[in-house]
Amino acid sequence: MAALAVAAGSAISPAYRIQLLTSRRTTTCFAMMTQRSSFSSVTLHTAAKRSQVACSAKRDTIDKVCGIVKKQLAVDVDTPVKGETKFADLGADSLDTVEIVMGLEEAFGITVDETSAQEIRTVEDAATLIDKLVMDKED
């Protein structure tokens, strides 16, 4: 599955860069430069894998994390839990967050280091980290 990221250029030289992440190993970039004296152009190049994550977590990962969070925190069935939902907004304290991380480790067969676990605040944070750890585990 490909992900798409769009970034605007500077005010001096307007440009738009569209980044299509096609696999774990390559990134395809389309750069559109707009200048008054010339027509718009499109260039295509393949870049090496970057260490920065440019896309959000997969939908199925987010859905699975939402289910685990709801179960761990005994959240009411009618309470909406989405990617942007903060654990604290669901009444979770630091111990609850540790238990959530343990449940995620078990469900996804991964190990989350302490530093990364402390940075998890939302369902999206957890799902993005999980996708990264699963991808790293496969490499």
Rank of each mutant, 00 (worst) to 15 (best):
V123N: 05
S13V: 15
Q35D: 12
A57S: 12
L129S: 05
K64G: 02
A47C: 12
F87M: 03
E99A: 00
D136W: 07
H45R: 05
A117Q: 09
D136N: 06
Q72W: 05
M32W: 09
V53Q: 14
A54N: 13
V6Q: 11
T111N: 13
D113W: 09
D125Q: 10
K132H: 09
I130W: 04
L73G: 01
C66E: 10
C66T: 08
E106W: 05
A5I: 07
T128P: 01
R36Q: 07
T79A: 08
S94R: 04
P80I: 08
K70E: 04
Q35N: 06
L73C: 02
K132V: 14
K137M: 13
G103C: 07
V112T: 05
A127W: 04
E119C: 00
A57I: 00
A11N: 11
D125R: 05
K58I: 00
L73Y: 01
K137A: 09
G103A: 14
S51E: 15
I12R: 13
V81G: 06
A8W: 03
D78K: 14
T46R: 15
A5S: 13
T46M: 11
S37M: 11
M33P: 01
M102K: 08
T28D: 14
L95A: 06
K71P: 00
D89S: 10
C55A: 12
L20P: 02
T79N: 01
I110D: 06
L73Q: 01
A54G: 12
A57H: 01
T43K: 10
S38I: 12
K82Q: 14
V77I: 14
L133Y: 10
T85R: 04
Q19Y: 08
I62W: 00
K132C: 07
R50E: 13
D78M: 13
C29F: 07
G91Q: 10
R17L: 15
Q118P: 01
V134L: 04
